[in-house]
Amino acid sequence: MYKKALTSLTILFFMMGFITCLNDILVPYLKSIFSLTYAQAALIQFCFFAAYGLTSIPFSKLIEKMGYQKGMVIGFALAALGCLLFYPAVLLHTYALFLAALFVLASGIVLLQVAANPCVAIIGPKETASSRLTMAQAFNSLGTFVAPFFGAYFILSGLTNSIYAEGVVYPYFLIAGVLIVIALVLSKINLSGMESAQADESRWQDVLKEKGLLLGVIGIFAYVGAEVAIGSFLVNYVMEISHVSETQAAPLVALYWGGAMVGRFIGIFTLKAFAPAKVLMTHALLAVLLILVSMQTTGTLAIATMALVGLCNSIMFPTIFTLGIKGLKDGQEKKGSGLLATAILGGAIVPLLTGLLADRLGLHHAFILPVICYVYIAWLGLRNFTKA
């Protein structure tokens, strides 16, 4: 049962990464189609990640009642519905409808996140939870690595001949079909052993009083915000520096996410060999250094150093997540996961603020906001390391 559960969860993580990373292709695509400013284009990520802030806790309550497996099946179905809603958005050529479709799609991803993260943490020994979640996140990163190539070929390649954003219809219909098939298969697998036997009688306020969880919530907000802000504007950043087309710049987004994938596979071993908090602090400090170098340079060096931040991001989510729920009592994982998933709202707020800065100061200088986020994460790692 353990292997079957872990295999199902890794497939789930792959699809979550693939769908989420396609937003990085939608940003330059819809920016061009609708002639948007950076701030307006950032609404794509805002509507997608706002779903985390609005639905994570309600979905956590839902999973408490119906269990992990049913929650994941509904999550896949809801995400498929969001993909299908791209069709009327194209027909009516309305940017607001694209944003609404993304919110529905993201709501399905939220439900999957809230169910999947604690599952990976509790199906094996607590001592290896960070390593196990990092492995699952590595397949999430594989999805984010593949998505830019998929998006560049099926979506961005037709940008010059596209008027009504019709390039997104068939790719998202294909994704909807895959999600529906996965939902049907998952509904037939017996994963009842994943459910926590410990009932949770605590209140949400009691769970949030755990200081480690609260700091973890802020850490997830900062991490996701910084990662998404860089990924969202990387195509435009490369275009601005090297004067290439969207299609030519898109593969560099794959390198950014590919770095996270490679780092997560390496992290499976480093998180066993070293204290997770120490690894987190080191990665965050490296991210700060790389972004500052990119901001102060131009050409290949500026692009390469920004893309390498993806490697630093690799172990951040699983490490912050497991450090956040470490002090919780048995049975409180679902509530803790819901609160941590709510913090993914950072992916809505930080890119939007970065877009506003880019419109005023230029994209080069706007990345100071992700720097601030990584400084906090470095402090969080230091605090947990010295406390251990």
Rank of each mutant, 00 (worst) to 15 (best):
S202A: 13
R203L: 10
W204N: 08
W204E: 04
Q205S: 14
Q205T: 15
D206V: 05
D206K: 11
V207H: 05
V207K: 11
L208E: 10
K209V: 10
K209W: 03
E210Q: 12
E210R: 12
E210N: 13
G212L: 02
L214S: 15
L214G: 06
L215F: 12
L215Q: 07
G216F: 00
G216I: 04
G216T: 03
V217R: 04
G219W: 05
I220C: 11
A222L: 02
Y223L: 01
Y223C: 03
Y223E: 02
G225F: 14
G225M: 11
E227M: 03
E227F: 01
V228S: 02
V228R: 03
A229Q: 03
I230T: 08
I230R: 02
G231S: 02
G231V: 01
S232H: 04
S232K: 03
F233T: 10
L234N: 09
L234C: 11
N236I: 08
Y237C: 06
M239W: 02
M239N: 05
E240M: 11
E240N: 15
I241S: 15
I241L: 14
S242I: 07
S242A: 10
S242W: 00
S242P: 08
H243M: 06
V244P: 09
V244N: 10
V244W: 00
S245R: 09
S245C: 12
E246Q: 12
E246D: 13
T247V: 14
Q248K: 12
P251C: 05
L252Q: 00
L252C: 02
L252I: 01
V253Y: 04
A254Y: 03
A254D: 11
A254C: 09
Y256W: 04
Y256Q: 09
Y256F: 14
G258I: 03
G259D: 07
G259M: 06
G259L: 09
M261N: 04
V262S: 06
G263M: 05
G263E: 03
G263Y: 13
G263D: 00
R264G: 11
R264A: 07
R264E: 02
R264F: 04
R264M: 06
R264T: 02
G267H: 00
F269P: 14
F269N: 15
T270A: 04
L271N: 10
K272Y: 01
K272V: 00
K272D: 05
A273Q: 15
A273Y: 15
A273N: 15
F274N: 09
F274I: 05
A277Y: 08
A277Q: 07
A277P: 06
K278F: 13
V279H: 00
V279I: 07
L280T: 05
L280Y: 05
M281Q: 14
T282N: 11
T282I: 08
H283L: 13
A284S: 13
A284V: 05
L285W: 03
L286W: 00
L286G: 13
L286F: 10
L286P: 12
L286H: 07
A287S: 11
V288I: 14
V288Q: 02
L289W: 06
L289I: 11
L290A: 00
L290Q: 01
I291D: 07
I291R: 01
I291E: 06
L292H: 06
L292W: 07
V293S: 05
V293E: 00
V293W: 08
V293D: 05
S294Q: 06
Q296M: 09
Q296D: 00
Q296L: 10
T297R: 08
T297I: 04
T297W: 12
T298S: 10
G299T: 06
G299K: 09
L301M: 13
L301V: 14
L301W: 00
A302S: 15
A302D: 07
